[in-house]
Computed example of a mutant assay.
Amino acid sequence: MVHTLHMGLFDRFRFKSHEDAGVGADRGGFRLADESEGKASLTLDLGDLPSDAAVQAVGEEPNGAFWEGLASYMAPALVSRLDMDSEGSMFAVYGDRTDLEDLRDLLQPLVDQPAAMTGVLQRAQADGVILEGYGR
C-alpha cells in the first residue's frame, strides 16, 4: 500500500528544520527558510508572545492579520515587495531573503519588548489606524 503525503499551504512553514532553513535562520520566534525559485519565507507562531498583553490592552487581537497590518504600517515600501499569507495563529510572508531579514529585524523588538509594541500602538492610534487588516 502506498501512502501519499499531502501538505497544506501552512504545513510547508511549520516543519522546517534548522538544516532546511540554513544556519541561524531562527531568531526570537521568527523562522526564516529558503523556499524554491530563490524565494524565502518568514514565519512567526502567534498566541503566546511577550507583547500580546500590550496588543490586547488597546483592543486589538494579536493574530496574523494584526501582524500583517503592523508590518504594513511600519514598512509600507518593504511590505509592497512581499507576499503575505498569514492565518490566525501564524504570521507568514514570502519574498526576497534580504527583505525578509529586514522585516524580521524591524518587527523583532515588537515581539520581545511590550514597551516597544505599546509605542507603535500609540502612534497607530494617533494616526487613526486599526492595525488588523491595515494595508489590505
Rank of each mutant, 00 (worst) to 15 (best):
G133Q: 07
G8S: 07
A126E: 03
T43G: 12
G119V: 05
L78G: 02
E132K: 09
L103E: 02
S86E: 06
G28K: 00
F30S: 02
V111R: 00
H18R: 08
V55P: 14
R81H: 05
I130Q: 12
L32H: 07
G24R: 00
M84Y: 04
F13I: 10
M117E: 08
D102H: 13
D112H: 01
F30V: 04
A54Q: 09
Q125K: 04
A75N: 01
Q125W: 14
D83N: 11
L9Q: 05
F91K: 02
A65S: 07
A57G: 14
A115Q: 15
G38S: 02
M74F: 02
D20G: 12
R123P: 06
L44K: 06
A65H: 12
A75R: 08
F10T: 15
P109G: 02
M1G: 09
K16P: 09
Y73E: 06
V120D: 14
G64V: 04
F13S: 06
T98S: 04
A54V: 15
F30Y: 01
A126K: 03
D45Y: 05
D34N: 10
M7Q: 09
V129D: 15
D112N: 09
A116E: 06
A40F: 10
L5S: 05
F91E: 09
V111F: 01
L131T: 10
A77E: 09
H18E: 10
D127Q: 09
L32C: 13
S41G: 08
E19N: 01
E87K: 00
E61L: 03
V23Q: 14
S89R: 00
E132F: 11
D48I: 07
A115K: 10
Q56Y: 00
A54E: 08
S89V: 07
H6P: 08
L107Y: 02
T118R: 10
S72M: 05
A53E: 13
L46P: 03
D96Y: 11
G8C: 04
D45W: 08
V111H: 00
M74E: 05
L32Q: 12
G95E: 01
